[in-house]
Design a protein around this nucleic acid. Structure first.
Length: 575
RNA sequence: CGGGGCGUGGCGCAGUCCGGUAGCGCACCGGCUUUGGGAGCCGGGGGCCGUCAGUUCGAAUCUGACCGCCCCGACCA
């Protein structure tokens, strides 16, 4: 590609509405342009990177026996009514009508379509297993698109679905995807980790997320630096040991006027927050529930949902007054046991000499001894894991980091196949619903994640595996005949040798070309200028570490082949 | 949906408080010079100041409504 004829609109200045690194880079390096909130155009360089990503995914999906489909993005709404997901998605699904007033939707995912094909076409267990996948534009009317390509309303996703006749088959399909995903993320150069995740409303028996650590990420994960334990904080648990404290303080009520938060009351009473029992009221399908955690802990609402169902929500302030008789800030378990279910976090087991609300405005109680002053109805792990908590496996203090979710693999089970009648006859001749798995990777998000983790102040640093072009020939003063001849010659030779190569033949100043080459992130730069050409030498630069060498032209190919092999070695799953 | 910020040539911004000829840098076009880290000089082109309504002799500037974009939160299989 000759840059003089190509559309690569790089930006010297950063557009003002970009705040995260990957977004700034994608705009500056000329990969994408915004059209509206959460919708982007991919420009040629962005599309080339995207195609590279998709090809890697395709190769790995084919490797595990996947077959590529292309399913419709435009769907009749009825098919989404069959599984009830038209309602579940609600406003997140784009709705439209055709000219005959038929209700249509833009597909946010494709389980229903897969099921509709399977139920029409697949009759016998002998036709299973199947792995079906596609690259397709997904539409989701996100409440708040943000962070450039990290959360958009229209994005390309590789989604795959496995169809099996039994659980053992699903386990096999699932582990194949696990393996494929590890190879994919390695090949794109991401330092990923895998976490057990909440299956959420998706249903099913298990799921894992493939994550990349990044401050721009929307997920929070606990990582053990010692044993490698990794979990989304939605489900992460810390090791805990039951306390064996002795009750020494006398239980009594104290006046704490207008002191509501744990911090305020703690300061007022001269205690540290961990000496408190924090009491929160939630509404659940079983009625109001009081949740207790240590004063310096936070309730993990995902864990509450796992326990009480997805409709758990914090009680409104008025509801609290009605149910407990005191305002938020003065709530406590003592005397409230008969009023509602009390469920306490495990870390309060055996806790003595604690303080909590008195269920009376402007009063707290101290000298609270768990098991004596009150007894919760249930114990559970309910707290949000924090930085430095002991790892549940090995006790080492964990790190808690922000992470980008790049892929998610699910053991779906029969939720959709059963609802839609996608069944087969098993080897006993019995009708059974197909057991499904579903497996997704966001392509644009993956590119954004690569840029979040592989870039510097000068711009993008592509790994060879994703680079739109592996090499750029920077022709300084290209108008000069000797330079032009040398550049054109090299350009042709590299192409013949199978390199994807760009030639900067533009009539702009050297500094401009250097800056652009760094910004666009070509892994290697071959710099052709008067400085060295007369001596038969040439300069090369490796973007990844900035290494520059002046070598004889005769050595050029050898060096670049070596550099390329090294670079690809860094992302080789078989290495 | 709640809170905050912003909307002025393609991009980045000033001007708005205190109403009176719409500016700067970059980019773009032409010319000359320049050519190893986003060049210099000269000359040009390009703006319904987000939209609509109102106040006023006069509105980018004041008032109101709406639209859009970004951030925080809520939400997010």
């Amino acid at each position: 590609m000759r840059l003089s004829k190509s559309f690569t609109p790089t930006l010297k200045e950063v557009p003002s509405d970009a705040t995260v690194k990957s977004h700034k880079l994608m705009l500056r390096a000329g990969l994408v342009r915004p059209l509206m909130a959460g919708v982007y155009s991919y420009l040629p360089m962005g599309q080339l990177a995207s195609l590279k990503v998709m090809q890697i995914i395709r190769e790995e999906m084919n490797r595990i026996g996947g077959q590529e489909f292309l399913l419709p993005g435009l769907n009749p709404k009825e098919i989404w009514d069959e599984t009830g997901r038209a309602d579940n998605f609600g406003a997140e699904m784009f709705h439209l009508k055709d000219r005959k007033d038929r209700e249509l939707v833009l597909a946010p995912t494709h389980e229903e379509i897969i099921c509709s094909i399977a139920r029409n076409e697949i009759r016998s267990y002998k036709e299973l297993p199947q792995i079906w996948y596609q690259f397709q534009t997904k539409y989701r009317d996100e409440p708040r698109p943000r962070s450039g390509e990290l959360r958009t309303r229209q994005f390309i996703m590789k989604d795959a679905y496995s169809l099996d006749v039994d659980q053992a088959g699903l386990d096999e399909s699932y582990s194949k995807h696990d393996e494929a995903y590890r190879r994919i993320f390695k090949r794109v150069g991401l330092d990923y980790f895998v976490v057990r995740a909440s299956s959420g409303l998706m249903g099913g028996s298990g799921s894992e997320e493939f994550m990349v650590e990044s401050d721009a990420g929307e997920d929070t994960c606990a990582l053990c630096p010692s044993c490698g334990y990794a979990a989304n904080v939605e489900v992460a648990t810390a090791k805990f040991e039951e306390l064996n404290e002795t009750a020494t303080e006398e239980f009594k009520k104290v006046h704490t006027p207008a002191k509501k938060t744990v911090e305020e009351v703690a300061a007022f009473l001269g205690l540290t927050p961990d000496r408190f029992i924090k009491s929160l009221v939630y509404w659940t399908e079983e009625g109001p529930v009081m949740v207790l955690v240590r004063g310096d802990d936070e309730v993990n609402e995902e864990k509450l949902m796992a326990k009480f169902g997805a409709s758990v929500r914090p009680a409104e302030p008025e509801e609290v007054v009605k149910w407990v008789g005191a305002e938020v800030g003065f709530l406590g378990p003592v005397g409230n046991e008969k009023n509602m279910t009390i469920v306490a976090d495990n870390r309060l087991k055996g806790a003595k000499n604690r303080a909590t609300g008195a269920n009376e405005n402007d009063y707290h109680v101290v000298g609270v001894h768990v098991g004596e002053t009150f007894e919760p109805h249930e114990w559970a792990d309910l707290r949000l894991m924090r930085e430095g908590d002991p790892c549940s496996q090995c006790g080492t203090p964990v790190r808690v980091v922000q992470a980008i979710e790049l892929g998610h693999i699910f053991k779906l089970g029969t939720k959709y196949s059963a609802a839609m009648g996608a069944t087969v006859l098993d080897h006993n001749g019995k009708v059974v619903p197909i057991i499904m798995g579903s497996y997704g990777i966001g392509v644009g998000r993956l590119i954004a994640a690569v840029l979040e983790t592989r870039s510097d102040d000068d711009g993008v640093i592509w790994p060879c595996s994703l680079a739109p072009f592996e090499l750029v020939i920077v022709g300084l003063k290209y108008k000069a005949e000797n330079i032009k001849t040398a550049c054109d010659d090299l350009y042709e030779q590299f192409q013949k040798a199978g390199w994807s190569v760009a030639l900067d033949d533009r009539d702009v100043r050297p500094g401009f070309k250097f800056k652009d080459a760094d910004l666009m992130g070509f892994p290697f730069q071959v710099i052709v200028g008067d400085k060295h050409l007369a001596d038969g030498n040439i300069e090369v630069k490796r973007r990844r570490d900035g290494e520059k060498m002046v070598i004889q032209i005769s050595e050029l190919f050898g060096l670049l082949e070596k550099w390329k092999a090294e670079d690809l070695g860094l992302t080789d799953p078989d290495a």
